[in-house]
Amino acid sequence: MLETFNFRVIVEYLPLFLKGLGATAWISLVGLIGALLVGIAACMGRISGWRALAAPVVAYIELIRSTPLLVQIYFFYFGLPSLGLRMSEYQTGILALSLNSGAYMAEILRAGVQSIPQGQTEAGVAFGLSYLQRLRHIILPQAIGATIPPLLGQTIVLVKDSALLSLISVFELTRASQLMTSERFMPAEGFLTVAVFYLLIYYVLKSLSAWWRRRLVHRRA
């Protein structure tokens, strides 16, 4: 199996892989920021208790969660031009990624906010704090700690999902291996190397999440 594995080709193509890794990191970072913004907005809309706002947000979340990301990517990629919107593959991909992850982030944030007992809000009201002050000083400091691990979990999913952008010819890590494979016809070297890179990102994020969990327990104790 491995005796035919050609490490020299991997070294030769290392700059391409590193460029792909950088592109994946960049796309994931921008996608993450977009997803957090969408998620915070959707979460606030959903728990606002204002039906006209909550209903469309719920519809958005359920629609995203019930359809595959690949279909969403194609929907935007093939669909936006017919609306007269011209976007680059990068923008389309990041848009799809942000909207997709945003729906999951919204649910995670909602679970975090709702895990805080009602009495906390009531106490804030009794102190005469405004809505924003309650959010800033009472709800968020408590909610954020517990939501960081699931948010990091969603970030791992986001990084892996960004591989799908290679299918609309966005250059990133998976695309780099496809390029190498088509030039040299060595799928084993290309795809296995890329898998190792993804695994590295996964382990970094996973240990970050574990570290935060430990810290959380210490702080509570």
Binding site: D161, A195, L199
Partner: peptide, 10 residues
Amino acid sequence: GTPYLVQIFI
């Protein structure tokens, strides 16, 4: 830790 797309390619 790896995307399913990469797994199916492998």
